[in-house]
Design a protein around this nucleic acid. Sequence first.
DNA 1: CGAGATTCATGTGAAGTATACCTTTAGGCTTAA
DNA 2: AAGCCTAAAGGTATACTTCACATGAATCTCGTA
Length: 402
Amino acid sequence: MNNTSSKIDKIFTSFMDNHLFKNKFVLQLSYTPETIPHRDEQIEQIASILAPVLKGERTSNLFIYGKTGTGKTLSMQFIRNELLKRGGKDDLVIEYVNCKLKKVSDTEYRILAELIKKLGGSVPATGLPTDQVYNKFIELIDNKKKLIILIFDEIDHAVNKLSDNFLYNLTRLNGELVNSQISIVGISNNITFLDNLDPRVKSSLSEEELVFPPYNALQLRDILTERAKKAFNESVLDDGVIAKCAAFAAREHGDARRALDLLRIAGELAERNNLKKVSLGDIDLANEKIEREKILDIVRTEPKQFQLVLLAIIKLIDEQKLEEIFTGDVYNAYQELCEQTKNEVLTQRRIGDVLSEFDMMGLINSSVISKGRQGRMRKIKLAIPNQLKLKVREILFDSLSL
DNA sequence: CGAGATTCATGTGAAGTATACCTTTAGGCTTAA
DNA sequence: AAGCCTAAAGGTATACTTCACATGAATCTCGTA
């Protein structure tokens, strides 16, 4: 008893003694730094586009693109704070909605409801016809002179789900407002998003457009250096640690979020192992860990049929000790597996699609080859590293209750 | 021997179907005036 | 009467099926040298 508690004591004290992190929060997503390196140009542009609100004029609608982790959201939040600071009074309203958060705001109704709530009104969670919600919304914002900027983050998600009617209504709203005026800022990481939009919406939504390019390794390094200064204690990072994080993330389309995750997880790993410093090796470990979690997560959340197909592939490759297998083999193995587990068997057509989705997700590598008289098929290789295969199998067995 | 036709096993696209999940609507019930 | 709830009705996205046609190189066919 005493022994255990002293052990635990040891763990805790050594944990407390180990001061790798000064403030881990700085590396978290929700942290908003005071400065945003290498986004000066974009921020200036946004600022000059939105500046008219300070003089009480309506601004152009703005549309922002850029891949994940290029600082779109961050810059926009930054500008929002600055504008609110200067604009002061309640005649300037800037609301931010993330359209991707499921269950909160991914339908027209919910987005409106959320906006109304933020503006101080209230609507029942369900039941009202949409046009009434519109009316309520209009009433709420139009009761006195206001300038309103609505920021829709991850707007592409919403539009896929609820037709572009919503945007059309919003862009047209200005005509119905007597006192107030609305500007819309859309943020999307899908560059092709605008193309399959109603042309009317397209033109009015993208009065101004702005692209956030991916960070390159050097810029990522600056960002990391800055954050690391606040997040870690002095000289706990080995030389080159930051550069390596940056390089890894730059390879993944310059995703700053990824870079920060890498650094944080490397730090956590080092801390857990009671190391005094974060070394280059820890970055590799962190990278593996992220990669691993990603794969396991995909596997875990995949629907049953997908899991069956994946298991069929893994079994085939293991049992036959082959590197590559072909569509037909997979389908047969899959069929057997279905019978064994009493699941219904999908058509070959569908399995073909499942396989190409696996390819997209990076679970397998496949290419279509023709073997002449032996027909045409996908040549399939498993892209899951060997050490992970067991774990993946475990998850599959578990979730298919085998 | 070689050009062109054939063939295989599946890729790929379009269109249709079943299903689950939403939103809308209408009717009925409750509540407060 | 107004407000609220609920069940049915109507809509829509998703997951799948069916049908139809496309592919591309090994193989076959057959005319020709």
